[in-house]
């Protein structure tokens, strides 16, 4: 187990180095000069030059990247050009919004997908199964930029149930906070609901063919406890993998959803950073997202061992 964790850690570091290098390189290759974004279009060449020196942009790419890495090793993500604040404090302000959005989305998606997937598997081709397939195929083909206007039209403009945009901190007013997050969570959860349901359904269909389901039925257990106590856990490998991997997709979709609902989360932060060529902020946010992603994948690997005790015996 110790060797397993050590190998995983080395793997993580390599992935993160590659991500950070690629981000820095792309930012360097992107046309446009941060100096103009900061000073405005009318800036004089002399002012641009002095700003380049101040920010260290006159140095070659590899020197800047090395510099950034050594600062990162000391826990310093640099200072945003645009906000004149440390990147880490900007991330920590935006993080609660995105974290709440994604955690609620995952919870909602699982709460809907688990019963839906299991009950569709119970009778393949039955009414529940066909109805579920029909609805989820609509969900999966409606990305946020299509579903959000639709949701806003119904819930905001027609029925006036939820506010269209804006954000209230949970600590300030829990009710208002939830009011503002309902629509973004719904919009973000359509895709995972569909994907999770499909994954769980197909695994559960296979599990229900197993002999041990027959012996559970012979014990006189109710359908519900057979489905949820005996069939669910051995059927949730694909679901668990997908839930872990979907975190990356969700962070990506959250960028769009946050932007459309004007939520001050990580997504809005990175969009504004890209717009103004705020290099330290983009690098910091991308790095942070990559860390979350890699950590979640490792957590899924460890969860497998919980789901299937047979894996605990194997040497990694």
């Amino acid at each position: 187990m110790g060797r397993y964790v050590a190998r995983k850690l080395i793997h993580m570091v390599v992935v993160l180095l590659l991500v950070s290098f690629a981000t820095s390189l792309m930012l360097d290759l992107t046309p446009g000069d941060p100096a103009y974004a900061i000073l405005g279009d009318q800036a004089t060449p002399a002012a641009v030059k002095s700003l380049h020196q101040e920010l260290g942009l006159d140095r070659p790419f590899y020197v800047r990247y090395g510099d950034w890495l050594s600062n990162l090793a000391r826990g310093d993500l640099g200072t945003s050009y645009e906000y004149k604040q440390s990147v880490s404090s900007l991330i920590s302000q935006a993080l609660p919004v995105t974290a709440e959005l994604i955690v609620l989305t995952l919870l909602l998606a699982l709460a809907i997908a688990v019963p839906l997937g299991v009950y569709s598997a119970r009778r393949v081709g039955g009414i529940v199964d066909r109805g579920t397939t029909f609805v989820t195929s609509i969900f999966v083909s409606a990305p946020p930029f299509i579903s959000v206007p639709f949701l806003v039209f119904l819930f905001v403009l027609t029925w006036h149930i939820f506010p269209a945009t804006g954000w209230v901190k949970f600590g300030d007013s829990p009710m208002d906070n939830l009011q503002h997050i309902v629509l973004p969570v719904i919009a973000l959860s359509l895709w995972p609901v569909a994907a999770f349901t499909a994954a769980l359904r197909s695994d559960t269909v296979a599990t229900l063919q197993e002999d041990f389901i027959l012996s559970a039925r012979a014990k006189g257990l109710s359908t519900r406890s057979i489905l949820f106590r005996h069939a669910l856990r051995p059927s949730s490998f694909s679901l668990m993998t997908l839930a872990g991997l979907s975190l990356g997709t969700l962070i990506g979709s959250a960028v769009i959803v946050e932007y459309l609902f004007a939520l001050p989360g990580i997504g809005s932060l990175i969009i504004s950073a890209i717009n103004v060529h705020d290099i330290p902020l983009v690098q910091g946010v991308v790095m942070f997202t990559a860390v979350v992603y890699v950590v979640m994948n490792t957590a899924v690997d460890i969860l497998y061992r919980y789901l299937d005790p047979r894996l605990r015996m194997q040497k990694a």
């Binding site: 197993e210 012996s215 051995p234």
Partner: peptide
Amino acid sequence: FQNPMTSLNPV
């Protein structure tokens, strides 16, 4: 049942 290898829930 016939096959004890598959008649018990593995997890």
